[in-house]
């Protein structure tokens, strides 16, 4: 299998970020909340990225923060995916009132922007990691539901699914053997996009002070902690931008590749 260069770069970067998140304890030169120097020291041999607003090593904060951000985003994505795609498939295959109920419910949830919904809920719930994951996962599941339902409805009307029905196949065979293999690629690509969205979402919440709470590090929080430095020309708060943007772009590249690979299998009109 040939992997195009863009996808390869994307894979390498994505992999590197995940490895860094998993092995943060080994990679980070200092502890997460360890104060090791002066306030906002510039980059040096000891502190490659300098220090933050209270003298913690920024590189270590970034690595630990990456762990939190990637963990929360991954957990939320897994939740939204499992919930959204299962309900989406059920709605598509069962149709009728089940579909109506689920679809209208999702319409309602999507009638309020996700960030606003999250803020409303977080105004009464304790802001802890499980709550954040739950809220983000549930809100994002609506989008996964819409996509997987649409994909499954498209596939369910195909003659090969009808042929399986006429053969007398059970519903589990139809979902897992006829529909799922054909729905997988768009869903995997969407999973990448949902993951990026979750990264941006948790970062935004943390920046607003309503996400990951200090002293736990995360990328959005690092911006919040160091934003006062900006007006003095200290770019510490901008470092997460580089991390978020490179992660987002590399996941995007991988998702594009997965999606392109699918269309090559679907062709087959000619010949």
């Amino acid at each position: 299998m040939r992997i195009p260069i863009a996808a390869l770069i994307g894979l390498i970067f994505t992999g590197a970020y995940f490895l860094a998140a998993i092995f943060a304890g080994l990679l980070a030169p200092y502890g997460m909340a360890e104060i090791v120097g002066d306030v906002w020291e510039p980059a040096s041999a000891e502190h490659w990225l300098g220090t933050d607003s209270i003298g913690r090593d920024l590189l270590s904060r970034m690595i630990w923060g990456g762990q939190t951000t990637i963990f929360v985003a991954t957990a939320a994505t897994i939740l939204s995916f499992t919930l959204g795609s299962i309900l989406g498939f059920i709605a598509a295959v069962r149709g009728g009132w089940v579909d109506q109920l689920l679809s209208r419910g999702v319409d309602l949830m999507m009638s309020i922007p996700s960030l606003i919904s999250a803020l409303v809920v977080l105004s009464v719930m304790p802001v802890t990691l499980p709550v954040l994951i739950l809220v983000m996962g549930l809100l994002d599941a609506t989008r996964v539901f819409r996509l997987s339902r649409a994909v499954a409805v498209d596939i369910a009307v195909m003659d090969y699914v009808e042929a399986a029905r006429l053969r007398g196949e059970k519903q589990t065979w139809i979902i897992f053997r006829e529909i799922l293999p054909n729905a997988l690629s768009p869903l995997v690509a969407e999973m990448g996009l949902r993951f990026i969205f979750s990264v941006l979402f948790i970062s935004t919440l943390s920046f607003l002070g309503l996400g990951v709470q200090p002293p736990l590090a995360d990328w959005g929080g690092i911006v919040k902690e160091n934003k006062e430095g900006i007006v003095y020309g200290i770019p510490a708060a901008l470092i997460p931008a580089v991390a978020i943007a490179t992660l987002a772009i590399s996941v995007n590249l991988v998702a594009d590749w997965v999606l392109n690979r699918t269309t090559s299998l679907k062709g087959g009109r000619g010949g």
Partner: peptide, 28 residues
């Protein structure tokens, strides 16, 4: 693609850093 990969608040600080702090052109 680059602009949609960076969250709004970071775009904001990047803009402040460049346009208000470095060039002192616009209010932060």
């Amino acid at each position: 693609l680059a602009t949609v990969s960076v969250p709004e608040f970071l775009l904001g600080y990047i803009a402040i850093f460049i346009l208000s702090v470095q060039f002192r052109a616009l209010p932060s």
